[in-house]
Design a protein around this nucleic acid. Structure first.
Lengths: 364, 364
DNA sequence: CTGTTAGCGCATTCAT
DNA sequence: ATGAATGCGCTAACAG
């Protein structure tokens, strides 16, 4: 293993000089010495020891990223954005996965603290459990008191810098758009009752319906993933109701729900409209393509890092809005299509020259 | 920031003792001292400095993982498997993304070397470019000569431990299964001509057709991602041919091809059968669900780490096989369905009690 | 502009 | 079983 000292010796210069040309900031080094050092380093295959640098400088170049599930496109998009941003800053990213266990999140913060990560990014919904939140805050506090910076992508409940998606507003807008298609009776596949993201989206959706003078939605809880959506949809099918439109609080659940509906022989959107939330791009591909509220996920990852890297005293909050994207999975209710009310064709025509089934603009 | 020395002082013991109880291996420490150290550490919120440990021990606990694109499920599945395995070994994972640029892969190895990663995992297709391979080998050599361990998930062309998917064989088996449905004229959306993975899969497919006495497939090259598949399918549509079955050399391309075919009004599988390769689970959800060759991606990530962690002198190779999974996107050719030849129903019935559209077993 | 030196936090001999 | 001392590779004063 080649060290700086080896390079210095081979170049016939001092340790300090070698350090200055290879890793130093100010370049007060003569041209010839510089060349000698550089050639010696190349010849010996010298690679800095970043851990030694961290120790000597008292600051590392690693960003710790904590997500819940790498397989979920929601998180892989955020992670991609964060990793690219870290790369732009010349930093490397250490990735930890909680598998949706809040306790693991705490353990990972401790691990990343041990790694001397310069910043820790926490992505994913916070929970409505004060005991958990207290333990999370405690671990973050010891990390921050050691100089660590923290940013959360999610709800602002930990006293950190936060990139906060406007879940309530996005769901509200979505409900308005769906009601605009003629729907009056809705169901919400509402996710787990403790997840703040699920709660906020459900609430926003319900508030819109209330404001429009429509009956409150039928709520069906379940897991926050594909199978949760599948199960919730199955339970919905087993109930007696007049629902014509279903809102799954995230895209994964919507995907599962779509599969379930297909198995039940329910035609989407003819028999039932279906929409999700997040805007993970895979939603273009199922048939029918799924309506959603699109969040700028990759950008949110980058924003979180930038937030954490520009230090301020008081924690800051940055909101990001979602954009309602109506696609083939939503259309007017069946009772409307035979009546005078028929705002637009529910399905795009097959057309070779058209772009891939991206988005139809939301109608207000 | 609390150091071991602080803990030692507060506990009234020596640095060495504190080190032994908190991070040491052998536990030759009295019970009372142990308790005092532990309580002091807890009280002060002590967290080890892993970078200092790395320096002192001369060995780190980070595994460096290099993938091409985190958004591609192929890589997020591998990464998930590798991260879980690293976690089991008490190691953390630093993730780098090349965006399919071989030069960036080299740079990332250097970065991870600087980070003093104990092992580096390289996932993704190698390229058929001797100049690139030489530079990659050179960088890996300096890393290994410094004590680093390397494993590759892909082709065994870098002289490293390797987890090698049987791409040729998987494509061969797929071709046999598709020919068994009655197809005689095939096209292959063959990906970039320099990607070994694309080459191997194309070759295996072609070999099977030759062995069966069928004409060679029509080859259409393009990028290795969704849009590449989309474009290739469009170009295929513009050609005059008697193709009844299309093989896209990875799932992403198959997904894009499916979208393109839909735009052209081509019914799958009635007008054209379509299959992919990789077995990323999202393929269950598009309609029709896509046939593929399923690789145990998460397990491959874990295998690579285990391989790199158990040191041997000679580089080893572990092959993994893919499993042909026929789904709704493949069926007998149109000319066969009206004739005597009709091996099975091409589409599963809509059935509420059935499982999600997983797999039909491959027919030999 | 260049060289000398003192730590950074910890593991680990080596004594005791 | 415990403590004192050395060094891991590097940066950053400080001195020339």
């Amino acid at each position: 293993m080649t060290t700086l000292e080896d390079v210095a010796k081979h170049a016939g210069v001092s340790l300090a000089t070698a350090s200055r040309v290879l890793n130093g900031s100010s370049r007060h080094v003569g041209a010839d010495m510089r060349r000698r050092v550089e050639s010696a380093a190349a010849r010996l295959g010298y690679r800095v020891d970043a851990t030694a640098q961290t120790l000597a400088r008292g600051a590392s170049n690693v960003v710790g990223l904590v997500i819940q599930d790498l397989i979920d496109p929601y998180f892989s998009l955020i992670a991609d954005g964060a990793i690219r941003a870290a790369d732009r800053h010349g930093m490397v990213t250490t990735l930890g996965t909680t598998y949706r266990d809040p306790e693991r999140e705490i353990a990972l913060v401790a691990t990343l603290h041990a790694q001397r990560a310069r910043v820790v990014l926490l992505a994913g919904s916070r929970v409505a459990d004060e005991a958990v939140l207290r333990r999370q805050r405690a671990e973050l506090d010891v990390y921050r008191s050691a100089g660590g910076r923290v940013a959360v992508i999610g709800q602002d409940v930990l006293g950190t810098d936060t990139v906060a998606p406007r879940n309530r507003e996005g769901a509200y807008d979505l409900a308005v758009a769906l009601a605009g298609l003629g729907h009056r009776r809705f169901a919400v596949l509402a996710g787990p009752p403790v997840l703040l993201t699920a709660i906020d989206r459900t609430r926003g959706f319900s508030e819109a319906l209330a404001d429009l003078g429509l009956p409150p939605p039928l709520l069906v809880h379940g897991d926050f993933d594909r199978d949760g959506g599948r199960d919730a949809a199955c339970r919905l099918m087993a109930m007696d109701h007049g629902v014509t439109c279903v809102f799954a609080v995230n895209d994964l659940m919507a995907t599962g729900a779509l599969a379930a509906l297909r198995e039940y022989g329910v035609q989407v959107p003819r028999d039932l409209s279906l929409a999700g939330f997040d805007g993970t791009s895979y939603l273009r591909d199922p048939v029918p393509s799924l309506a959603t509220v699109r969040l700028p996920l990759a950008r949110m990852g980058a924003m979180a890092l930038d937030l954490a890297l520009t230090d301020e005293d008081a924690p800051r909050r940055q909101h990001v809005s979602g954009e309602v994207v109506l696609r083939d999975s939503v259309g007017p209710p069946a009772w409307a299509s035979s009546a005078a009310y028929a705002p637009s064709a529910p399905v795009e025509p097959a057309n070779p020259s058209a772009a891939s089934p991206e988005a139809r603009p939301a109608r207000p």
